[in-house]
Simulated scan of single mutants.
Amino acid sequence: MLRCLSRENSAVGRSLSTCVNPPLPWLFVGLGNPGDKFKGTRHNVGFEMIDALADSLGISLNNVHCKALFAQGFIGNVPIFLAKPQTYMNLCGESTGPLAAYYKLPLNRVMVFHDDKELPCGVLRLQHNGGHSSHDGLKSVIDHFRGNRDFARLRIGIGRPPGQMDPKAFLLQKFNSLARERVSWIICF
């Protein structure tokens, strides 16, 4: 019956095949630290990217699911899940791992947005199947995926700490106006 319909009317056939085989969802996770104290800091650009994506789709992250602020929506006909773990950066795998498991998502349908001090400020890199590069948030995610690294990462460049500045202090510092301008153009797509 489906073959006959698809031959007779390709639009109907495409519509029915979409209903029979709906597209797999994507899970987008932004890494950061919860609370106003950390808002606008370099370490929270992953959260900012999720907020910008939610705003552009007209959805709100107003649910809590698996220790994360959470929302569901669509990009075209593809279902998406957006998450901002509320466990603090170093434990974000406690949220990310259970979310992927709950929705039975293969890791190639998970993308993590995170800060990267190895990239110049405002530079984006899409990477698949890499290490954690001493990023404790990514290390936590990999640990909760049982060592599996088969997920995508959108690395958001925040630049390196100046001089002898403590890297941890640099991560938790708010952007200066020039650096904010550089990252704002990539976050406000």
Score class of each variant (00 low, 15 high):
Leu172Ala: 07
Thr87Phe: 00
Phe38Thr: 04
Gly131Ile: 10
Phe81Pro: 11
Glu8Arg: 08
Phe145Tyr: 14
Ser134Lys: 10
Asp136Pro: 01
Gly157Arg: 05
Met165Thr: 11
Leu2Thr: 07
Arg160Glu: 12
Arg153Met: 07
Met89Tyr: 12
Pro85Glu: 10
Val110Asp: 06
Ala179Leu: 06
Phe113Thr: 00
Ile187Asp: 02
Glu118Tyr: 07
Ala169Arg: 07
Gly93Asp: 02
Gly13Ala: 03
Asn21Gln: 06
Gly122Trp: 00
Arg149Val: 11
Ser17Asn: 12
Pro22Trp: 11
Gln86Ser: 09
Ile186Ser: 06
Ala71Phe: 02
His128Gly: 05
Asp166Asn: 15
Gly58Glu: 14
Leu27Glu: 03
Cys92Met: 07
Leu107Pro: 05
His128Val: 07
Leu105Lys: 05
Val45Trp: 12
Thr41His: 10
Val112Tyr: 00
Glu181Pro: 00
Ala101Tyr: 04
Leu57Asn: 14
Gln72Ala: 09
Ala101Met: 06
Lys139Asp: 05
Phe175His: 06
Val29Phe: 01
Ile59Asp: 12
Ser184Met: 03
Arg146Met: 12
Lys84Phe: 04
Ala11Thr: 06
Ala101His: 11
Leu61Asn: 08
Cys4Trp: 09
Gly35Pro: 07
Trp26Met: 10
Gly97Arg: 08
Ala100Glu: 07
Gln72Tyr: 05
Ser140Gln: 09
Leu154Lys: 00
Glu181Lys: 14
Gly93Tyr: 04
Asp136Ala: 14
Phe28Cys: 08
Ala11Gln: 11
Leu99Val: 12
Ala152Ile: 05
Gly93Met: 04
Gly32Ala: 14
Gly93Lys: 02
Leu119Ser: 04
Leu119Val: 06
Ala68Pro: 02
His135Gln: 12
His132Thr: 08
His65Glu: 10
Ser134Asn: 15
Arg3Trp: 06
Phe74His: 15
Ile186Tyr: 00
Asp115Trp: 00
Ala179Met: 10
Thr96Gly: 03
Met165Glu: 13
Leu178Cys: 00
Glu8Cys: 14
Trp26Ala: 05
Arg109Tyr: 09
Ile50His: 15
Ala152Phe: 15
Ser134Arg: 09
Arg182Lys: 15
Asn90Thr: 06
Met1Ser: 12
Ser15Val: 04
Val110Ile: 09
Ala52Gln: 15
Gln72Arg: 08
Val183Leu: 02
Ile59Lys: 10
Lys104Tyr: 02
Arg125Trp: 00
Asn62Leu: 05
Ser6Lys: 12
Gly147Tyr: 10
Arg155Tyr: 03
His43Ile: 13
Gly131Ala: 07
Ala100Tyr: 08
Thr18Ala: 12
Leu171Val: 12
Gly131Leu: 11
Pro98Lys: 04
Asp115Met: 00
